[in-house]
Amino acid sequence: MAWLAAGEGYEITLEDGRVVARRVGGRQLKALPKALRDSPEVDRLRQLAEWLDRHAASCVAQVDAWMVSSLPVPTELIARVWPDEAWQAALRDMAVVGDDPDEAGFLRDVTGDGELKVVDLDGETVRLSPRTVTLPHPVLLPDLDDVRDFAADLGITQQVEQIHRATWTRPDGPDAGRPETATEVRDYAGGKFTSRFGLAARATGLGYRVSGGYATCKVRDGGRSTEASVWIGEPYWDGESETGGLSWHDEDGRAVRLTEVGPVAWSEGMRMAAALYAGRTIEEGGDA
């Protein structure tokens, strides 16, 4: 960002999200001069910095939503937002898939003509120009461990957790140990917290919605919307609380049988339940 005149013989700019100053044409100062701290120019830059932070967070949240739901994203849209640094940071190095399921790779750049420059899983840089692409949830990627190894070799880093996102695969068959009519998983039930408020705060801090007595997350899986929910206690209870069972519901609020839960909805629901459970109070001592 360019240096802006701020009066009193100073210039200001943004650096790493904070306002810095210098004498006109001189070296950057270690601290903001007292004469500038309450100036309108500095205040406007601070507001700009706050807006840029919110914008960057909203870009990451949108890309995460595309990935979790495996929604088709118009290639033209990606090309249009790519010049924006915040969008570019959120999208770069995301695994994308074109019209052909074999057209998978990591997004590295967008050409002036709107083509996506992708490093495919053979290490070759290719150009894709399908009408839409998907940013697949990792549970849908075949040979995920190999993809992760390849990403490590390339030095891939992602602002949106995709390749290294924790995943769970639904156990099927008699070994699953659950009746076919089961609608609840209790693998992460019983995690005790000193207060219901603390458990709810953990849920919202992790990005989940708290509604009534539940922490919830919505996922679009296989063309249908499913909501995973974990019981966290009565809303106005101020005593100890603990995590309850995990269940899934369709758009009409009906419980979904575990055998009918899609792979992404299962993985994301289990991820939420595990993340809540991980914050539980750990007892110490001989009676623990």
Rank of each mutant, 00 (worst) to 15 (best):
190 G>S: 08
243 T>D: 03
201 A>C: 13
172 D>C: 10
182 A>Q: 12
209 R>M: 10
190 G>K: 03
217 C>M: 10
159 Q>A: 11
181 T>I: 13
185 V>R: 10
158 Q>H: 07
215 A>T: 07
178 R>E: 05
228 A>G: 09
241 S>W: 03
159 Q>T: 14
155 G>R: 15
208 Y>M: 03
142 P>G: 05
239 G>P: 11
147 V>D: 10
189 A>S: 03
243 T>E: 04
152 A>L: 05
169 T>C: 10
238 D>W: 05
220 R>P: 00
223 G>C: 00
171 P>K: 10
176 A>E: 02
150 F>Q: 10
154 L>C: 11
242 E>T: 01
154 L>H: 04
161 E>Q: 12
177 G>I: 05
215 A>S: 10
228 A>I: 02
158 Q>N: 06
152 A>H: 09
155 G>D: 10
231 W>R: 14
223 G>R: 02
154 L>A: 08
225 S>G: 08
169 T>R: 14
191 G>R: 00
142 P>A: 04
193 F>K: 11
142 P>W: 02
214 Y>W: 02
173 G>E: 01
225 S>Q: 04
228 A>R: 08
251 E>V: 09
207 G>Q: 09
254 R>T: 15
232 I>V: 04
195 S>H: 01
146 D>N: 13
169 T>L: 04
207 G>F: 03
177 G>A: 02
234 E>V: 13
208 Y>S: 04
234 E>C: 13
147 V>Q: 09
200 A>H: 04
200 A>C: 08
243 T>Y: 04
224 R>V: 02
203 A>W: 00
143 D>T: 06
216 T>D: 00
216 T>G: 01
180 E>C: 02
173 G>M: 09
189 A>G: 00
219 V>E: 00
212 G>Y: 09
186 R>I: 02
166 A>M: 08
145 D>Q: 11
206 L>Q: 11
184 E>F: 07
162 Q>G: 07
237 W>C: 07
249 H>V: 12
148 R>W: 00
233 G>W: 08
142 P>Q: 01
181 T>W: 01
207 G>W: 06
210 V>K: 09
157 T>V: 06
193 F>S: 10
219 V>L: 01
197 F>Q: 11
161 E>R: 12
231 W>E: 11
225 S>I: 05
181 T>G: 08
177 G>L: 05
175 D>Y: 12
200 A>G: 05
177 G>H: 06
179 P>T: 03
183 T>P: 09
144 L>T: 05
231 W>S: 15
188 Y>N: 12
187 D>G: 13
254 R>F: 06
238 D>Y: 01
198 G>P: 00
241 S>C: 13
240 E>D: 15
158 Q>D: 12
152 A>K: 11
239 G>D: 14
190 G>Q: 10
247 S>M: 07
241 S>L: 03
218 K>R: 06
180 E>Q: 11
218 K>M: 00
144 L>I: 05
156 I>V: 15
141 L>T: 06
144 L>E: 02
188 Y>K: 07
249 H>T: 14
175 D>R: 14
246 L>W: 01
145 D>N: 07
161 E>I: 14
147 V>G: 09
247 S>W: 09
155 G>M: 11
230 V>K: 05
171 P>W: 00
187 D>I: 07
207 G>T: 08
193 F>I: 13
